[in-house]
Nucleic acid binder design. Structure first.
Lengths: 280, 280
DNA sequence: TTTCCGGACTATCATTTGTTATATTGCTTG
DNA sequence: CAAGCAATATAACAAATGATAGTCCGGAAA
């Protein structure tokens, strides 16, 4: 059977200035290679290495151990559950490629997405404490994911203090992100919410090499954005049109083109500090 | 949409004002004997003992060690900051009595409350990881709070595995609660949001002995509820009147009288499972 | 190719919620 | 006691957002 893959990041146009943006297109292209041949590629190409390295220095052995986590990654189509509400998983899930989310449904069918899982995200790092999940985790677009048994994870953190520390900081960042979403939904207007969401995705995908300064590929439908921001799909459409008319960002065809990053951030009041908590 | 209307950020008061506590007597009268009235009182009267014991068995030594945390508690008036955004605290804060919250302001003055801190709540148990806070913590009504130095906390968890485990579960419960709030604000109607909030407070205060089946004392203003639920104060007033007319709950005079607990929970679709995660 | 279908898009209308303004109440303070 | 302040209450109006319905488009399947 055919296995769905993510659209690879589009090559940067010749006019694009490198600037301060971390990702290089050639690196991203090779990141798409199957994980089996990954031992020749720089370890930083593995999204989880890139993500955790941003929280503090990792030893070479730690980077290698992290990269190994993605070795057995499998392809999953969009709209599939990875972990279902009520289950008591004995493994964590590492997103190697694609976008997944945490979500829950109300009895009336309404869905609320409570978190996005992007390449390099590991959930849940402390599943040992968790009896049964009270929300589900599912893919939004096609993904490559690796299941990490609890014992493997425990051994990893026991042996590598740098990884343990980075995972704690990553967890903290996730908590802060949830609070930021609450801020978003609780007291920002529709256009501000959507703008903020697009900024956040830009920043997060950027640190793992899946976004350029010009934009990023995004498998979310307008309904997915609506369920994230607490809006209706129709209103999300209205807001996206407005953002397009304001020459800030164009969203369509599973692609987000950021025309005016500064302007978008201004509308969203976006401050990216919450994504990078610093250790004490 | 939301226009400047808020009271300015509360003035910071690093000085722990001790002594007077305006509304104290009435709060204590119905529910419990005052927890501070002595070393002779059963340890379960200490809210943090009650709260953590709900997550799993604690040894007598552990209960005693926990009860000691509240020994040096000081009185703080309402509307005072305990920790201010941008600070890098070296201590955790234990709420012994009263209600506090995590919150942030938007530049336009709008405030979003992202969490409630009730008696027995300890924040943040893992402050070691935290560089600077990107939200503030402040009292909503008069409180008694104890500051717990990081070293004390570290020693406590190192020496008492039962406490360490309970604190981890409590942290997990807090995360689940934040997600539940996101669900609330993101996809429930105004009346459902307020009903859900009242149910949650009832359940949480109940486990630490500050609520009876009939209701509980609550120092929140309607504006505070509004800032929690992502509504305007006027609309909160409308909703509270509706809940009163439906004979579900009466809120007023710093008091919540629950007339029909089952009915209120039905309106809110309240499931309290998220408050008590089970260990694996 | 044609058909089918999900997603994007738009228009119109309905409704919830926010805004502004003004009393009122109760408590604190002078 | 009166004055002042904060919180509550309510009304009238405005704005933001949701609901419904339908078209259009592009990719997948027959």
């Amino acid at each position: 059977m055919t296995v769905p893959r993510m659209t690879p990041p589009t090559a940067v146009s010749a006019t694009a200035t490198s600037g301060t943006w971390p990702a290089a297109p050639t690196m991203m292209a090779s990141a798409l290679a199957p994980p089996e041949c990954g031992h020749h590629a720089p370890l930083l190409l593995h999204p989880i290495v890139r993500k955790l390295a941003a929280f503090g220095p990792l030893s070479a052995a730690e980077e290698e151990a992290l990269a190994d986590l993605g070795a057995g990654a499998q392809c999953v189509e969009g709209r599939q559950n990875l972990v279902t509400e009520g289950a008591a998983p004995d493994h964590a899930v590492l997103i190697v490629e694609g976008v997944a989310c945490r979500y829950r449904h109300r009895p009336n069918g309404a869905r609320q997405i409570t978190g996005h899982l992007l390449p390099g995200d590991l959930c849940d790092p402390d599943l040992v404490h968790l009896g049964r999940m009270n929300h589900s985790i599912g893919t939004l677009g096609p993904c490559r994911v690796a299941r990490v048994p609890g014992e493997v994870l425990a051994g990893l953190t026991a042996r590598h203090p740098g990884i343990a520390r980075a995972l704690r900081l990553a967890k903290l960042a996730e908590e802060e992100t949830t609070r930021e979403w609450l801020m978003n939904v609780g007291c920002r207007s529709a256009i501000e919410r959507v703008a903020h969401l697009l900024c956040e995705l830009h920043a997060r995908l950027g640190t793992v090499g899946w976004a350029t300064r010009a934009g990023y590929d995004l498998p979310l439908t307008q309904q997915d954005i609506a369920d994230t921001a607490g809006l209706s799909n129709v209103h999300v459409n209205r807001v996206l049109r407005q953002l397009r008319l304001m020459r800030l960002v164009e969203v369509g065809g599973r692609r987000v083109d950021v025309l005016d990053r500064a302007g978008l951030r201004r509308v969203a009041e976006f401050q990216d500090g919450y994504l990078r908590p610093t250790g004490a």
